[in-house]
Amino acid sequence: MSSYLFVPGNNPGMVQSAHVFDAKGVIFDLEDAVSVQDKDSAKDLLKAYLETAAFDNVYIRVNDIYDLGKNEIEEFNNFDISGYVIPKANTKVMSLVEKYTNKSLIPIIETPEAVLTMKEIGEFDNVTGMLLGGEDLATNIDVVRTLDDIELLYARHKLVMVCAYLGIDSIDTPFTDTDNDESLEESVKYSKMIGMSARSSIHPNQIPIINEIYKPTLEEIEFATKVVEAAKINDSGVFSVDGKMVDLPVIIRAKNILKKAKAYEKN
């Protein structure tokens, strides 16, 4: 699966059903989706919830590390969660966070500074992925979000390159128009096409659309299977399958597709 679902941390109805939507990761949010006066009750709710429920790939988006974030990280360190999603990340923030926890970290790239220092942010030890925060980034460069995200072009493509280089997940920004499934589909197809390893979402109804697009198609699987089979027989380097030339990069891609396809069987 290639989807991350943000879930408001103070909403019991949404917290309790967060894991039924087949998102790859669930990110319980203490930051933007929780009002200032309810930061404490969201924390209590998530703690009480996590004492009773055990799921893989649960993350918590904490608040600003210079504000409530530090304590939140320390309080949730004893819970069985995968890690933290870190807002307003930069190298200074990450060097602090590193001291507070050994859990996996997903910094959010949402400032021009973070875009420019993406590689350095991603190089911190426990970083397993980086998430593009499109809304904040757009605000920070003083532009309006468009449906095709032209304004995020540079940041998106750079995130793919840096994460591929570092071998970590590149997680694309949420698509915030929750009533526009057609444009969501276009946007997620683009994410997949340029190499984003996952898409984040703020609405459960978007998860199946994201998963479906990221799932290898039957045609892809059939072709990949043929390539891998043919590669077993032809060790001469270059050969052709269905009229297409196959060399090592194609074989590696085919193996990756079959690996992904396997991950989609039985979850």
Partner: peptide
């Protein structure tokens, strides 16, 4: 219709 852990959390807060 809250679950037990929700009621507990609300009380703690």
């Amino acid at each position: 219709g809250a679950y037990d852990y929700t009621i507990k959390a609300r009380l703690i807060t």
